[in-house]
């Protein structure tokens, strides 16, 4: 038996999908256009704008910076976020309720305000160079994902399992690595992916923290668009989309996508 779908509902669903996907189709089309300005539908077909990305060293360099910052920033956020999530769950009874909220502040505060305050505090205030500032800024930006997603995993973890390991002679720290961590592995990977994608795509924090000679890919895309407005922008965007699709494909193949939406 198949459920009957009202024709209007069907039409509406198709419209929603179009609305979601059309911009992506337009970008792909624009990236292939054989013109020197952005246009859709494409006039003529060429891959030269993709080749152009690799000829512009600024794209290469900022892409490398972006990946480095995303990996190191996300790593740093997990180093802080996993113990924080552990403490928030393990000692829930004894801790004040607002403490958990503290860790999602970077999501709640408008990013532009957050970026500016980071500029004031770490770049100007502490005088840190651009690169470490970027890493610290991104780590703070994605910390909520680490704490919340790992926390969701820990919420369903039975801490008496940890006590069982300790009673069997396993010291507490070793217990964390041999018993707790393997059981929240999916949460840690999910947190890493969400945080990584957030970091790679970030503009508002980076725009304050990048400086002379060091920039991230989204900032470079903006800068390039202001100067040239050629289809290179579209082709970079297509490449970024492919990276995201690739990450998702790996996740789907190894863990299943459903665990990201849980």
């Amino acid at each position: 038996m198949t459920a009957r779908i009202h024709p209007l509902l069907g039409a509406f669903a198709i419209l929603v999908f179009l609305f979601l996907l059309a911009p992506l189709v337009i970008i792909v089309g624009a990236s292939l256009s054989d013109t020197t300005y952005l246009t859709f539908p494409p006039q003529g077909l060429t891959l030269r704008w993709f080749a152009n990305i690799f000829e512009i060293s600024a794209f290469r360099n900022t892409a490398i910076t972006s990946f480095q910052v995303a990996i190191l920033g996300t790593g740093l956020s997990l180093l802080i976020g996993i113990p924080a999530a552990y403490a928030l769950n393990r000692y829930r009874v004894g801790l004040p309720k607002w403490l958990g909220t503290l860790f999602i502040l970077p999501i709640l505060v408008p990013e532009i305000v957050f970026g500016f305050s980071l500029l004031k505090s770490i770049t100007i205030g502490m005088g840190l160079p651009v690169y470490p500032s970027l890493i610290i800024g991104h780590a703070l930006l994605v910390l909520p994902y680490s704490v919340r997603v790992v926390g969701a995993s820990l919420a369903s973890f039975d801490f008496s399992v940890e006590e069982a390991a300790i009673s069997l002679g396993c010291p507490p720290l070793k217990t964390f690595f041999t018993v707790v961590l393997p059981n929240i592995r999916a949460g840690v990977i999910a947190a890493f992916i969400l945080a990584f994608i957030t970091s790679i795509n970030d503009v508002s924090i980076s725009v304050f923290l990048t400086g002379p000679g060091i920039s991230t890919l989204p900032i470079q895309i903006l800068a390039h668009m202001e100067q040239f407005f050629d289809p290179t922008i579209a082709s970079v965007s297509v490449l970024l989309m492919l990276v995201t699709v690739g990450v998702m494909a790996i996740v789907e193949a190894t863990l299943g996508l459903t665990f990201l939406t849980k």
Binding site: S160, V161, A164, A165, S167, G169, P171, N183
Partner: peptide, 20 residues
């Protein structure tokens, strides 16, 4: 003495087996 050094066998209400 810390718990891991006490050498006591414990059986829990909810079993507390290592799921992995």
């Amino acid at each position: 003495l810390p718990a891991h050094a006490r050498d006591i066998g414990l059986v829990f209400q909810n079993y507390a087996l290592f799921p992995h």
